[in-house]
């Protein structure tokens, strides 16, 4: 008798489970760009979404990975080769060191923009990154781009996940808003 009940439940469970796929909810974002203005837009949207109680995943790939780099010297578990060292030196070391995508003018435009942001009380990028983490925004660093650009886990800020395209697609599929910045 118990066996029969179990069978019945089993037969009914499958179609019901298939119907019960949760409604897409939340925000997923590919952060591809490593420029100050684009990163600001990405993080303002992410923080706004998190404030509105949406689950948020930010997937950092290519130049976007530089936003997650730590400022200051890092000891590497194994030495970088010359190409990796060159990439590491030429790319901005973290949120504090990004440049504007337009009107950078050798750094002058970026400095002016930062001054105006301070005057107008717009949160700076490092603060937005920290606030996003505090709000539970999930950061995923793309391991393929890390490998390509010679970026190591130890030079990225803590509290982030590592994944590939599958990780982004999984987040995108279960979210309703998906952006590429």
């Amino acid at each position: 008798m118990i066996g029969a009940t179990e069978m019945e439940t089993g037969e009914h469970a499958l179609p019901e489970l298939a119907e019960e796929k949760p409604t897409p909810h939340g925000l997923s974002m590919v952060v591809f760009s490593g420029e100050l203005d684009k990163a600001l837009a990405a993080f303002i949207i992410a923080n706004g979404a998190a404030a509105m109680d949406l689950p948020v995943t930010m997937f950092f790939t290519f130049w976007g990975l530089n936003i997650l780099r730590k400022d200051g010297p890092v000891t590497f578990a194994s030495p970088k080769d010359s190409t990796e060292k060159m990439f590491g030196m030429m790319m901005p070391k973290g949120a504090k060191h990004l440049k504007l995508s337009q009107l950078n003018m050798g750094g002058l435009g970026t400095r002016m923009m930062k001054r105006v942001m301070t005057r107008k009380h717009v949160m700076d990028l490092p603060t937005l990154v920290k606030t996003a983490q505090e709000q539970g925004v999930r950061f995923v660093a793309c391991t393929m781009s890390m490998d390509l650009m010679g970026i190591r886990k130890e030079e990225l800020i803590s509290g982030i996940d590592f994944g590939g395209v599958g990780s982004f697609i999984d987040a995108a599929d279960s979210s309703r808003i998906s952006l590429f910045v």
Partner: peptide
């Protein structure tokens, strides 16, 4: 006052 977007929203939350 004097806080720019998304500051007021974060403070409200």
């Amino acid at each position: 006052r004097g806080v720019a977007c998304p500051g007021p929203l974060l403070e409200a939350k």
